[in-house]
Design a protein around this nucleic acid. Structure first.
Lengths: 190, 190
DNA sequence: TTCTGCATGTAATCAGTTACATGATTAG
DNA sequence: CTAATCATGTAACTGATTACATGCAGAA
């Protein structure tokens, strides 16, 4: 129950239209909170009804009009209330872990298919890490010269980087373990 | 859409009643897939209707009867089909990261409250790590003597351990960052 | 007698996903 | 002429959570 709060943080950092928010949820915020545009528009309506946000129509030349939302003082107060409440335990859903344990009940070709899939998955995470590192160089070139907001953004990004590095190391461990189950047989050269 | 598959893996590893499954989802499987007993009973019904599982009534002395479920060949086939499908990208939901970025919009007492909350959260993860390490010593005392199923269980557990270690290191980084925002002022001794 | 553990569920609600829909502009 | 980007939504459905409910056994 905190898509509202993620949106409030994003709007306090910078007011935005629903469309712009959806793009942020594909990029920076999406690192730790995902949401589709459908969901965002629905929640924005609810937040407007609760007077947590207020919108302003902006006409654009050559582009459709948009409605730019900002957090109201009431919205900021709601965020602060939530910030001071205990952090809820995360609901863990790690599909790959289920598959790894499940592959004990498949045969060698099935295990080989999982190896290929883990390799693909690993490449995705390698790309994600590269993207984070590029973002870090771009947005935080001088980490000693940051204001409070930037320091906090940076430490969250460092969390993403640490997570991706951990995942990559673990996936190497997984690949080695899977390959050990079906060791390649040695053949005499023909 | 894979609570079904997590249950199939668990039942293939060892048949169980709904209640026992719910406890597993609080312990070992819960490391990478959470589910409440209400959800489990509902899904078990659906799986029975799909003939993925079959149940046997077991009368117990001094305890209520229970229904022990096993995966059928059809269930195993459904699992294998799912195993060979691509892994879906995970939906990330990291509430603490939202709070860290959000605390830029709170005052010093609010930041102090978050420090306290992060410390509590860190203690939880330290306990989780200790539990994993104890489980590793108990269940995998001799890591070179494992069959396929145990090797896979072990590599998943190592993932949990790596995750918890990464989280603890990051939380230390977070705490240092939060404390730097409000450096303690030096006072003359009265 | 109160609490914990064993054992199973229903009902209501909420959050999130998927599918569908529209319409303009700009770049290839 | 097609695809991508900008911009906003509705409707239907599925998955997950929360609240409520029952009942027995054994321990404190």
């Amino acid at each position: 129950m905190s898509l509202e709060h993620a949106i409030l943080v994003s709007l306090l950092e910078q007011p935005a239209s629903g469309y712009e928010l959806a793009r942020r949820f594909d990029r920076s915020i999406g690192r730790f909170w995902t949401a589709t545009h459908q969901q965002i528009y629905r929640v924005l309506k609810r937040m407007e009804a609760d007077t947590w946000i207020a919108g302003e129509e902006i006409g654009q030349e050559g582009l459709p009009d948009k409605k730019v939302w900002s957090a109201t003082p009431a919205g900021r107060a709601a965020l602060v209330t939530w910030l001071r409440a205990p952090v809820q335990p995360e609901a863990v859903r790690h599909e790959l872990a289920v598959k790894i344990r499940g592959v004990a009940f498949d045969d060698a070709p099935g295990r080989a298919a999982l190896v290929a899939e883990v390799e693909r998955y690993r490449a995705d995470h390698e790309a994600t890490l590269a993207g984070y590192l590029a973002g870090e160089r771009r947005d935080f070139p001088d980490p000693d010269e940051l204001d409070a907001r930037e320091s906090l953004q940076h430490v969250v990004l460092r969390g993403g980087i640490a997570y991706e590095r951990m995942v990559l190391a673990w996936l190497d461990d997984v690949l080695a373990t899977l390959r050990d189950l079906d060791p390649p047989t040695r053949k005499a050269t023909p």
